[in-house]
């Protein structure tokens, strides 16, 4: 009798202890630390920094396009892979962010989705995740409409201008492909759990 009661009480105790763990996955970071991390300036990259990564084909960087597939097919950054935001939060992020040695940069059309994804990923413990400031809108304004007017240009300005020009050229070349070729090309590069490399190259 005594053993039965002991087992019963211990079982109840175990059930109680496991109750809060029934959620599929919750943020692992502490709220205070997460808030401080995501409000830091270092969690974002400017479009110029991303343009440099693209031009130099930096292999330590992975660019994730969070927009819908139809938007991605129409327009995307060279080297990016498509992972719609709804899909990102609906599946196990480890399928996409399992390589913890490379930096992942999220972008969307504006700032919202990329920053949701940034906090979401960091909350789940993926530290090397970042957002591109201003998204595709900022890319179009800054990189694609980059112009220089004036008589003199400093070395720094010249370097930025050159990167923008080269990145803009890559972007134009890729996104000017005929629809049929582009769809076929994008489908072969669609982000999947099995294929983590490659993309809109």
């Amino acid at each position: 009798m005594r053993n039965k009661i002991t087992i019963l009480l211990l079982s109840l105790s175990l059930i109680l202890a496991l109750l809060p763990l029934t959620a599929n996955r919750s943020f692992t970071e502490k709220p205070g630390k997460l808030l401080s991390d995501v409000l830091d300036e270092d969690v974002t990259f400017s479009v110029d920094q991303v343009a440099r990564f693209i031009v130099t084909e930096d292999s330590t960087i992975r660019i994730i396009d969070l927009r819908k597939p139809e938007e991605f097919r129409k327009l995307c950054l060279p080297g990016s892979v498509n992972l719609p935001y709804a899909e990102f939060i609906g599946t196990d992020p480890d399928m996409y962010l399992n390589n913890r040695n490379i930096k992942t940069i999220f972008y969307s059309n504006s700032d919202l989705d990329a920053n949701y994804a940034l906090v979401y990923a960091r909350g789940l413990g993926y530290e090397l995740t970042y957002a591109m400031e201003g998204g595709m809108t900022e890319w179009m304004n800054t990189v694609m409409e980059s112009k220089f007017s004036g008589e003199r240009i400093s070395a720094r300005e010249n370097a930025v201008f050159e990167i923008r020009t080269r990145a803009g050229k890559l972007f134009t070349e890729l996104n000017s492909l005929p629809e049929s070729e582009k769809v076929r090309f994008m489908e072969s590069k669609k982000f999947s759990a099995r294929k983590l490399d490659g993309g809109c190259e």
């Binding site: 919750s26 709220p31 939060i89 949701y116 909350g123 789940l124």
Partner: peptide, 15 residues
């Protein structure tokens, strides 16, 4: 003051 909810479910309104 702690995270305990299913992250994907809570984030759904943003999607």
């Amino acid at each position: 003051s702690i995270f305990k909810y299913d992250a994907g479910r809570m984030a759904k309104p943003s999607a």
